[in-house]
C-alpha cells in the first residue's frame, strides 16, 4: 500500500472518526520515547497517558470525568509505522495545565511532533516538523502539508488542514 493511493481513503474514513475524535499520529521516535503508549515518562510525549488527580471536589474531577476512552481509529494507517497510536485517555481535570503531561479534554488525542509523511487532514500535533515556516495568515506549510495552530483545551496544537488558499 502506498501513502498516496490510500490517503484519500483514509481521509474519508477519518472524516467520520473526526466527528468525535481526532486521530493522532506520533512518529516512531516519539512513540518510542514516550514508552510506546503516547505520554508516559516524557514531557514531550503525546496526549493521553497521565491520569490526573481531581483538581476539584465536585466538578470536573480528573478521576471522575472521563469522556473519551476510545482508542483512535487509525491503528491501521500504514504511514510512518505508527502502530503506537495513543489511547485517548481524556481526563477532564487539570484542563488548564496544557503541555505533554496534560491529557487534552476535548475528545482530541494529539501526536507529539508532526511527521510529514503521516499528515492526515485533521491530525493534531503538539509541535511542527523542524523548519516549518509560516504560510499566509496564521498557517504553516512544509513538506506539502498545511498546519493551523489551534487550541485543544488549553494546549496549543498544530492541525493538518487543507490548503488555506
Amino acid at each position: 500500500m502506498t501513502n498516496r493511493s490510500t490517503r484519500p481513503v483514509l481521509a474519508s474514513l477519518l472524516a467520520g472518526a473526526l466527528a468525535t475524535t481526532v486521530a493522532i499520529v506520533p512518529t516512531t521516535s516519539d512513540a518510542a520515547r514516550a514508552g510506546g503508549g503516547g505520554a508516559a515518562a516524557n514531557r514531550g510525549g503525546g496526549g493521553g497517558g497521565g491520569r490526573s488527580a481531581p483538581t476539584s471536589i465536585n466538578h470536573g474531577g480528573g478521576s471522575t470525568v472521563n469522556r473519551n476512552t476510545n482508542v483512535n481509529k487509525n491503528t491501521n494507517v500504514n504511514v510512518n509505522r505508527n502502530t503506537n497510536v495513543n489511547v485517548n485517555n481524556n481526563y477532564h481535570g487539570g484542563g488548564y495545565y496544557g503541555g505533554g503531561y496534560h491529557p487534552v479534554a476535548t475528545g482530541v488525542a494529539i501526536g507529539a511532533t508532526a511527521a510529514v509523511t503521516a499528515a492526515v487532514i485533521g491530525s493534531a500535533y503538539r509541535s511542527l516538523p523542524p523548519s516549518c515556516p509560516p504560510y499566509g495568515s496564521g498557517y504553516y506549510y512544509c513538506g506539502g502539508v498545511y498546519y493551523q495552530p489551534q487550541y485543544s483545551g488549553s494546549s496549543v496544537t498544530y492541525v493538518v488542514v487543507n490548503n488555506p488558499g
Binding site: 483538581t55 476539584s56 488548564y96 479534554a105 487550541y151
Partner: peptide, 11 residues
Amino acid sequence: AEKYGLTVPLD
C-alpha cells in the same frame, strides 16, 4: 468545561 474542555482547579 463542557464545550472546550477547560477546567480550573478548585472551581
